[in-house]
């Protein structure tokens, strides 16, 4: 399948593992399922989950910053053969 002349690019990056955090943390209910301490009247259950949004923003921003440059480098070899020819 893979031809030797095509330079396989990849979107693999160790930084992607960072995205486990915003996926896993909001699913760990024991971390935040309580009323106190309250913040501005918000029970912990609510303000902590709002805080998790910030964790999500931070981690995705970091991963984007660390990975987006690599994708720009063009691959000069991959310019032939219509790819849908192998269909069916």
């Amino acid at each position: 399948m893979t031809e030797p002349r095509s330079v396989p690019r990849s979107d693999r990056s160790p930084w992607n593992w960072l995205l486990i955090i915003p996926i896993a943390v909001p699913l760990l209910t024991p971390l935040y399922n309580m009323d106190s301490p309250r913040l501005w009247g918000f029970p912990a259950f609510y303000w902590l989950q709002f805080a998790f949004i910030l964790i999500g923003v931070t981690t995705t921003s970091i991963v984007y910053q660390m990975t987006h440059r690599r994708a720009v480098s063009p691959s000069p070899a991959a310019s032939t053969s219509p790819s849908e020819a192998g269909d069916e």
Partner: peptide, 20 residues
């Protein structure tokens, strides 16, 4: 038959194979 190639999954804007 798999009509895709491994590097299809990383293609980006301005990809040269796009036009064909």
């Amino acid at each position: 038959i798999d009509g895709t190639r491994p590097d299809d999954f990383f293609a980006d804007e301005g990809d040269p194979r796009l036009e064909t």
